[in-house]
Design a protein around this nucleic acid. Structure first.
Lengths: 150, 150
DNA sequence: GCTAATTCCTACTATATTTCTCGGCCTTTA
DNA sequence: TAAAGGCCGAGAAATATAGTAGGAATTAGC
């Protein structure tokens, strides 16, 4: 049950954009270098993010990408969904409708997967890019304090 | 972030064994037929489960497999781990040690994945095969009551 | 002891998915 | 008008998944 690089790289790229929110566009080359991701590959990921309206592009020289809304309004879940499709450990719990499986035994497994799905979504949809920025700041300060005492 | 058939089939097979716990061994052919899984493929999955000590085999004619302990003592997490390896959405949170990433930005993403991992494990390790059997029974009873009123 | 049922084992294959590359066109700023 | 940078589609390479094939070893029952 691994997340592919799409989701991982994508989140890192979006985090990079969040860190520089309000400072003008960041180019793919720039993001790719900072996060150590293949440029062309990242291009495709960002295209998917753009399609879902999470980023806006500015074309031409000195162009690049910016978040389409403030970091606090972008959930990690939005990013993962944009890049990996619906969040669901198995197909049969993808949609939230009440379709029941034909066989009870399968349904019981389904109950487990449903719980897993809900718990994943709970985490991803209660964490925003802003939270991640705050977290980073916290870590930075802790490190600083640590250095002080050396 | 999908679970492969290994985990899905494996859980269904184990559930099948749980349903028949105490009734003697169930052959692969039997399980495969009941759960509609390729025999040879299931064989490989069960081999992995056996290696991890979750099932015991009885060789020869009339042989098959039985759970190595009672359904209440087998967590869904045990099964998934046996078939898919460590439960972790990304590599860097696989082990519970305190290895910190060299780059802070990655670490922040890591914090998110760590939370996801913990929430998945929480669900999978608090659900046993017995729970699934009880769940099935509950569903069965509900259906029965429903039929009664028609 | 023979036969049928069944586990056990190793290898192989086909397909799908993921990850990344290539090359070129279009847009905008300096 | 040149350089920076987004946009786009095809496809290559690597890896993982899902399954196949075939046969050896073991045991119950006759």
């Amino acid at each position: 049950m691994k997340l592919s690089t799409r989701g991982r790289y994508g989140l890192r790229a979006m985090f990079e954009l969040a860190r520089h929110y309000g400072e003008g566009p960041l180019s793919i080359k720039n993001i790719a270098r900072r996060q150590n991701i293949s440029e062309h590959y990242l291009e495709q990921l960002i295209a998917a993010l753009k399609k879902k309206g999470l980023v806006r592009s500015i074309r031409g020289s000195q162009g690049g990408y910016i978040l389409s809304r403030k970091p606090g309004d972008i959930k990690v879940g939005d990013i993962i969904r944009a890049l990996e499709g619906p969040i669901a450990p198995v197909e049969c719990v993808r949609d939230n409708d009440s379709e029941t499986c034909s066989r009870t035994d399968i349904c019981v497994a389904r109950t487990v997967w449903k719980k897993v799905k809900d718990s994943i979504i709970e985490v991803l949809d209660t964490t925003t890019l802003e939270d991640m920025c705050n977290e980073e700041e916290k870590i930075r300060k802790e490190k600083e304090r640590f250095m002080y005492y050396i």
